[in-house]
Amino acid sequence: MPTSLPEPAASDPARTPAATVASSVYKRLRDDLLNGGIEPGVKLRIEAICERYAAGNTPVREALSRLAAEGLVERHDQRGFTAASLNLDELEALTRTRADIDVMALKDAMAHPSTQWEEQIVLALHRLSRTPRSAQDDAYVPNREWERLHREFHRSLIANCRSRWLRQFSEELADQAYRYRQCSIRNAYGVRDVHAEHAAVAQAVLAGDVERAVSLLTRHYWQTAEFIQAVAGGEKGAV
């Protein structure tokens, strides 16, 4: 298991209110946890984080507590914090829960269609299709813009859902799923036609075919889980 943080990143010196500093540390640390800047299982030493983000002890502890509440950080009695580990058993539960929540949200959105919502889906898919998955042509290098547009596309599918709770839960589950997805991208890249999967879901939604849309979206999520399991050798436990 990794035992230390990467080298501290440079950040702005600051005479800033504590609440602002805590918010900044929270956002930057959260981004690093989600995007792989800090690997799962790494011990999050308070002193190292203070140095990395040029912040004091109090705002760092506040940020870690918020992230622990979100499940991105694990708190250990008398042993501090670690970046949340990845576990195949939890992945299955996460995938099932995410599929259930997004299916409920999608069904509600499709039951109350609007021209604006349909145009949002078409535009989100178009923008995503025109953005390369990798930042390089000859090897996979994460493209942050593709990731941003990918999230926007999935948001667009349920944007017309009337329940803000379902939309909020969907966002939280998508964050957790994103961490796991980083484990499979290199293996799936060039093998899996993700654009075709997205286009098929969008087409079913726009056609008002609820059964097909639900089936395709659910399959889309489980395919990701299957790739992650393949990377881990299909064994239960930590990824």
Rank of each mutant, 00 (worst) to 15 (best):
M1T: 04
M1D: 01
T3C: 03
T3G: 12
P6N: 05
P8Q: 04
A9C: 11
P13F: 09
A14Q: 11
A14D: 11
A18L: 12
A19Y: 11
A22R: 09
A22Y: 07
A22M: 02
S23Y: 04
V25A: 03
Y26E: 15
K27W: 04
K27D: 09
R28W: 03
L29P: 01
L29A: 00
D31I: 00
N35M: 13
I38V: 15
E39D: 00
R45Y: 07
R45H: 12
A48D: 15
A48M: 09
I49C: 06
Y53Q: 03
T58Q: 12
V60T: 15
R61C: 12
L64M: 07
S65Y: 09
R66D: 09
L72W: 01
V73A: 06
E74D: 14
E74G: 05
R75M: 08
R79E: 13
R79G: 02
G80W: 04
T82D: 04
T82Q: 09
A83T: 04
L88H: 04
L88C: 12
E90R: 13
L91A: 08
L91P: 07
A93Y: 08
A93S: 11
R98N: 14
A99P: 00
A99H: 08
I101G: 00
I101A: 03
D102M: 12
K107E: 14
D108I: 02
T115F: 12
T115R: 14
T115D: 15
T115S: 14
E119K: 15
I121T: 08
V122L: 14
A124W: 12
L125M: 03
H126S: 15
R127A: 07
R130Y: 06
A139Q: 15
Y140V: 07
V141D: 01
R144P: 12
R144F: 12
E145A: 10
W146N: 15
W146C: 01
R148S: 11
L149D: 07
H150E: 15
R151W: 14
H154W: 14
R155A: 10
S156L: 09
L157Q: 05
L157R: 05
I158G: 06
N160E: 11
C161W: 10
R162W: 10
R162K: 14
S163Q: 06
S163T: 07
R164F: 09
R164D: 13
R164N: 12
W165G: 01
W165K: 09
L166H: 09
L166M: 13
R167I: 10
R167Y: 02
Q168W: 13
E172P: 00
Y178N: 05
Q182D: 00
C183R: 13
S184L: 01
S184E: 13
S184K: 09
A188M: 05
Y189F: 15
Y189C: 02
G190T: 06
R192M: 02
D193H: 08
A196F: 02
A196V: 01
A199N: 00
A199L: 00
A200N: 02
A200Q: 00
Q203L: 01
Q203N: 05
A204W: 02
A204K: 03
V210Q: 11
E211A: 10
V214L: 05
L216C: 02
Y221E: 06
Y221W: 07
Y221T: 01
A225F: 03
I228V: 15
Q229T: 05
A230E: 11
V231G: 01
A232Q: 08
G233K: 02
G233R: 01
K236T: 13
